[in-house]
Design a protein around this nucleic acid. Structure first.
Lengths: 217, 217
DNA sequence: TCCGTTTTGTTGCATTTGCAACAGATACCT
DNA sequence: AGGTATCTGTTGCAAATGCAACAAAACGGA
């Protein structure tokens, strides 16, 4: 097993990694596109997952069958019901968008002091801290997005963010249908608003290609 | 200075605490109700704050002057622009709801390996990890709330959560005006929906006293 | 290539929502 | 007690939104 590429184990020797895997109850697993990585309705495993490669979507399905895209889990991201989306009552699952490799750690073993006093235990916790900080940032960003009141504002906020991140013209990383779920608005209403935005000359939309008009800057 | 009551320093001797304060560039500060704890528009200090006592509200004000309550920071919570609500572009500030005591740490010093090799450095990072996990949970909850599409769903989700936490009948921890900002909906629209909910017999509302009707269970 | 599934574009309609405005109630400070 | 600021309850109205439905286009697997 090659640990060198895994951010989680950054700064920790391969030998230590192997040792520590036992302490943390580490489990490695792989999933194929479309498979369910975790099902948080009946999964009291208290595990923390780290996405090594691939992408997955945290999806909530409420009693009416509405699907909501809670978050996108990407390479290097940390996830888990202990961390997030704990108890809402609805059905929550993590579903694979692309084949992915995952490491699971037992949450309780992380904060517990290690009896074996592995020398790098603390380094791993520090790494986890950074992963958490990154996650917190992305959750905060999501809150900023969802706290916009209108579909228009949500779209513009999202576009500005992606535009700043990926460059002036960028390609949506998901389908329009999915984007509507992400923004938590009705798809048809979103498409309507998208048309208004283009009519007002604020954006150019061509399928998944989006470009903000300079008027915005 | 008494460190024993501060969760952040849990498991760390007073002597070590004093040592470490230097490593982390710790600053203690107090604020009075109404004062601005942090102003994230022009504050590139990269500090992490821990609320020792008191309560504060993270508020965003957009260019139109709309206020949004991003999060409630309570005793023991961790906060900071490095962690959350980083860059949206709008004006974001943390404002004191009750007199509060705060510790600030320099974010970069936390993850950096300590040259002085303070023995408890790693314990503190572990404590921070737990604080972060707690924060992540509350952010996740907030996302669950904001991802509801209608005002009715937001209200009911919020009431169920508070009801489970504080008991069958509970008192809103904020004014109706503030609640509307928290749910990110128009206040008058919220009041209207609140009335419909009572008409439908789902809740009883008496000022800040809320009770879910058993029909819900 | 063919077939089934998903996505997209579109529309009508009832409902919800944001917005603005105002008066009365309440809380807060001096 | 008086005065100011905030909160609450309410309304009308225009606009946005959710919902349902359907056909065409695109996609993906056998």
């Amino acid at each position: 097993m090659d640990f060198s590429q895994i951010e989680l184990f950054d700064g920790i020797s391969a030998a230590s990694c192997t040792d520590m895997l036992v302490c943390f109850g580490a489990e490695f697993d792989s999933f194929r596109t479309g498979e369910v990585v975790c099902d948080y309705s009946d999964d009291p495993k208290r595990r923390v997952g780290i996405m090594r490669t691939g992408r997955a979507s945290m999806i909530r399905i409420d009693e009416s069958g509405n699907e909501t895209l809670l978050e996108e889990v990407e390479e290097g991201d940390i996830f888990g019901e202990v961390l997030c989306f704990g108890d809402g009552g609805d059905y929550v699952k993590l579903i694979c968008d692309e084949d992915c490799d995952v490491v699971f750690l037992k949450y309780d073993q992380i904060t517990k002091r290690c009896e074996k006093a592995c020398e790098h235990h603390s380094r791993l916790v520090a790494n986890l801290f950074e992963l958490m900080a990154k996650k917190t940032l992305s959750l905060g960003e999501r809150i900023q997005l969802l706290s916009r009141r209108t579909t228009r504002e949500k779209l513009m906020y999202y576009f500005r963010l992606e535009s700043a991140r990926r460059g002036g013209e960028f390609t949506l990383p998901m389908s329009h249908t999915r984007l509507a779920e992400y923004l938590c608005v009705d798809r048809s209403a979103m498409v309507r608003e998208l048309k208004r935005l283009t009519d007002d000359g604020l954006v150019r939309v061509d399928g998944k290609k989006i470009r903000l008009t300079q008027a915005e800057f």
